[in-house]
Design a protein around this nucleic acid. Structure first.
Lengths: 145, 145
DNA sequence: CTTGAACCTCCAGCCGCTAGAGGTTGCATA
DNA sequence: TATGCAACCTCTAGCGGCTGGAGGTTCAAG
């Protein structure tokens, strides 16, 4: 009922590490809270909620600039939520692209793993395939980031 | 037929950027090539093949330490390829995990996007869901990396 | 001989944190 | 009240896997 949380309290409540919370503050995602006389951060309920918002958005895979605009949006209830809808749709498209790419990788890996049942490296299809410079440029280049 | 490639030649042949090739060299993944009298890198066919190997492995999503060991393995044809098989299997498992996680995210995003058909922010399910601190800790925490 | 594209080195930055060093504060217990 | 120790503070550097730029040099074609 005291309405004040230490950074550790926030961390426990939201599952976001204290170091990460400080980092969010330094990046301007979280507002700087008031301090105790000794200089330790003292948060209020609003901070707790904002941090929860950020965490949920991160869990959905939103990038930080997107989260910034979602936070801005949430602060103005009168505005149209089209931007939020667009962000969700874009994020979905990005995930779809990644899913397609990962599925292709998985299939290729399964093929390789199946074709190599042990034995000497010189007979190993995995190594052979990797080493084959005639192997096509078939895979998506934009993965991994 | 001259058997010598500039870094740009290698880049064209493999689709790996010249800067990246230099970076591979600095990391020890590519051996330092000989140089022209003027100091420019002069590669041979072995370099071309090694770079192709690295690229294929990257396309399959292998991490660089794994690629290092695969390269070592490829250099010793008498050894058993079990390690290569294990690497492929592990990589597959990692991809499976990521696929599961992305599918869950996608489903959640689809739900949100569908439930918000425009209108004011104060009625927007997307914003509302993000802001709801009672929202579960359901999503996998280890995504994004 | 003159262009200008390709090459060189070195350094900084991307994202989203994470960890560690080295020091200070806050709270519970004796 | 003293003490101990967990939690806090700031600052800095590092992760992976590159990428881009500044500022200068070399190479090959015309």
């Amino acid at each position: 009922m005291k309405g004040s949380y230490s950074i550790g309290d926030l961390a426990r409540e939201t599952g976001v590490k204290a170091t990460t919370i400080r980092w969010y503050e330094s990046e301007g995602l979280m507002p700087a809270p008031s301090r105790t006389p000794g200089g330790q951060r003292a948060y209020g309920r609003a901070h707790l909620e904002r941090l929860g918002f950020i965490r949920h958005a991160r869990e959905l895979g939103f990038a930080m600039p997107t989260i910034r605009s979602l936070l801005d949006l949430a602060a103005e209830p009168e505005r149209d939520c089209a931007a939020a809808h667009a962000a969700a749709t874009e994020q979905m498209a990005a995930i779809d692209a990644k899913l397609r790419q990962l599925k292709a990788l998985r299939a290729e890996l399964a093929r390789l793993a199946k074709a190599c049942a042990g034995g000497r490296v010189s007979d190993c299809l995995i190594i052979e395939t990797l080493a084959d410079h005639r192997h096509g440029h078939c895979a998506d280049k934009n993965h991994g980031r």
